[in-house]
Simulated scan of single mutants.
Amino acid sequence: MTIENAMVLAAGLGTRMRPITDTMPKPLVPIAGKPLIDYALDALKEAGVRRTVVNVHYLAEQMEAHLSAYSGLEILISDERAALLNSGGGLVKGLKLLPEGLVYVMNADLFWAGDGKGETGNLARLARFFDPATMDMAMLLAPTEKATGHDGGDDFRLVEGGELIRAREATAETGGQGVIYAGAIVLNSRLFADAPEGAFNLNIYFDRAIKAGRLKGLLLDGDWATAGTPEAIAPAEAVVLRHRASA
Rank of each mutant, 00 (worst) to 15 (best):
G121W: 01
L91N: 11
T21F: 00
N86P: 13
A65P: 15
A60I: 01
I31V: 00
T148K: 02
D223R: 12
Y58S: 08
A10H: 10
T148E: 12
R128S: 09
D154M: 11
K93T: 01
M137L: 13
L126P: 05
T134N: 02
N107I: 08
A227N: 13
Y181C: 15
T171N: 12
A172T: 10
A212V: 09
G183V: 11
A108V: 11
P230V: 01
I210R: 10
Q177T: 00
G121C: 07
P25Y: 11
P230H: 10
L98F: 02
R50D: 05
A65H: 14
N86W: 05
S68N: 08
K96I: 03
K117W: 12
N188I: 02
R168D: 15
G176Y: 00
E74V: 12
V179S: 02
E231K: 14
M24C: 12
E197R: 05
A147K: 05
N55T: 07
A65T: 10
L67D: 13
T23F: 12
V8E: 10
G183C: 06
N188Q: 03
F111I: 13
F111D: 15
L219F: 03
G89N: 04
D131C: 05
T144H: 15
V92N: 15
E46I: 07
D42A: 04
G222W: 07
A133H: 14
A195S: 11
V92M: 13
P19G: 09
G14N: 02
F206V: 10
V54R: 03
N203S: 15
D155A: 12
G161V: 05
R81Q: 07
P196F: 06
I3L: 07
L191E: 02
S87R: 09
I77G: 06
G89D: 09
R81F: 03
I31D: 00
T52K: 05
D136V: 03
I180S: 06
L241P: 09
K34I: 11
T120R: 07
P230K: 10
I204G: 07
E46A: 01
W112R: 15
D42P: 00
D223M: 09
W224Q: 13
T2I: 06
L202E: 09
M106G: 02
L41Y: 04
M135F: 08
H150W: 00
Y58C: 12
A193H: 07
P196L: 05
L102R: 04
V105S: 02
R16N: 13
S78Q: 11
G121N: 08
D22W: 07
I185K: 14
V105N: 03
L164W: 06
G149V: 01
D42R: 08
N188R: 03
E100C: 03
A227Q: 08
R51S: 14
A234Y: 09
P143F: 06
G217C: 04
I20Y: 07
K45I: 01
Y39Q: 01
F200K: 15
D109M: 14
P19E: 00
L140C: 06
L84H: 06
L91S: 08
L98V: 01
F156H: 01
G213E: 07
S78G: 04
P27E: 14
A209I: 09
V239E: 09
Y104P: 04
T23A: 13
E61G: 12
E145L: 03
N107V: 05
A182R: 01
G228I: 03
L59H: 08
G213V: 08
V8A: 07
A83M: 01
D221I: 05
